[in-house]
Simulated assay, not measured.
Amino acid sequence: MDPFKKRADKPDMGEIASLDKTKLKKTETQEKNTLPTKGTIEQEKRSEIS
């Protein structure tokens, strides 16, 4: 194995360091698949027993 050969599994940190964050668009994150609450789980358990 050539130690000077670029490895594909290692990211090029030079590109990350030169990233201009001011050019990125602001986005709003929306949760699509929310986890059930403890109350919802208990309610489903009770309905399965009935």
Score class of each variant (00 low, 15 high):
T27L: 12
D20W: 03
L19I: 06
E48A: 07
K6E: 06
M13E: 08
E48W: 00
L24Q: 06
G14L: 02
K21Q: 15
I41W: 00
E42P: 07
D9L: 02
K23H: 09
T22G: 11
K45E: 06
K25N: 02
F4K: 09
E42A: 01
P11C: 01
T34V: 11
S47L: 11
A8D: 09
T29Q: 15
T40V: 10
E48D: 10
E48T: 14
D20V: 01
F4C: 09
D2N: 04
P3L: 00
G14M: 03
A8W: 14
Q43A: 15
R7I: 13
S47D: 04
F4A: 15
T29P: 15
A8G: 13
K5R: 14
K21T: 14
I49D: 07
T34N: 13
E28R: 08
Q43I: 10
S18E: 07
E15R: 09
L24R: 03
K38T: 01
S47H: 08
E44P: 12
E48F: 11
K26C: 05
K23P: 05
K10W: 15
R7V: 05
E42C: 01
S50T: 15
G39Y: 02
E15A: 08
M1A: 14
Q30K: 10
R46L: 12
K45S: 06
K38W: 04
T37Q: 00
K25W: 01
T40I: 05
E42Y: 06
T22F: 08
T37H: 03
K26N: 12
M13Y: 15
D12T: 02
L19V: 14
D2L: 04
E31N: 10
K38G: 00
E28Q: 13
K21L: 15
N33T: 12
K32W: 08
A17H: 04
S18D: 02
R46T: 12
E15G: 14
T37F: 00
K32G: 10
E42N: 11
T22E: 07
A17V: 11
K6F: 07
S50A: 15
T40F: 03
